[in-house]
Design a protein around this nucleic acid. Structure first.
Lengths: 127, 127
DNA sequence: TAGGTGTGTATATTATATATATACACCTAT
DNA sequence: ATAGGTGTATATATATAATATACACACCTA
């Protein structure tokens, strides 16, 4: 399971796990119906407490991404793609919004802004 | 003093104050040498504790944005514009980076991305 | 120069959120 | 039945956010 935790980021561990699992589900890396690593397994792998992974899984279930079967495991639910896409788009726009705020403080022009965005995008798609 | 606090954001109050004051200093709304509202005044205005405003001011002083004179008040320090600009640019790029991550999850193309960015930018500069 | 009123400071306290250890209950295969 | 996997519940420790209250310093004015 490719999950990377940062202690210094200030973001709670359970949120980091939650977000990364969510991304994997949206991207299809974790397929519909597939079983997630057990809470214990993941906790041991990440060297954290069982309770912390449980917390992450609880949030994922609350948001409709996974389904829990007591005594068996947690499974990726069929997802409402329209809803998921809309939510992710909202987050995306929020980040663009913040970027523009910062750009204004530095007198960065729209052209410079889109240039930087383009570089970041292409850098990411080279790999 | 135009400071807006959100209880629901999850961001600590002192950080919200800190960030907004920082932005005002960078933008020049709060000019070099100018006195900030006293901790008590701001606390009363925002209906929060004196300690919370103090915490915000402490962080600003730590980061070199203001200077405290006991018994007198807090004042905007002359700032190293190159450093400030560089830091803000970093934050800006970080947001663009996150935006691209989200875009990838939704299969949003570079063109769509720059279009949305442009709309947000222009919307902001209309006012 | 005494005192009032402004300023920032320090200490102790409360509430909330994060992360934990440990013991419990459920499911399935042997 | 029971061993060994699964998720669950309770009580606890720790860190952080926010607070109330009392203190100390600076300036102005009577």
């Amino acid at each position: 399971m490719n999950i990377i935790l940062s202690n210094s980021s200030g973001v709670p561990i359970y949120e980091q796990i939650e977000q990364q699992l969510k991304d994997m589900i949206i991207a299809g890396t974790l397929a519909e119906g597939e079983m997630l690593p057990s809470m214990r397994f993941l906790a041991k792998e990440l060297r954290i407490s069982l309770i912390t992974t449980k917390r992450a899984y609880e949030e994922l279930e609350r948001d409709g991404f996974i389904e829990t079967r007591v005594g068996i495991g947690c499974f990726v639910k069929p997802k409402n793609m329209d809803m998921v896409r809309e939510q992710t788009m909202c987050q995306m726009e929020e980040h663009l919004n913040e970027a523009v705020s910062k750009a204004d403080l530095c007198d960065v022009s729209l052209k410079e802004l889109t240039d930087i965005l383009t570089i970041i995008y292409e850098e990411r798609h080279k790999k």
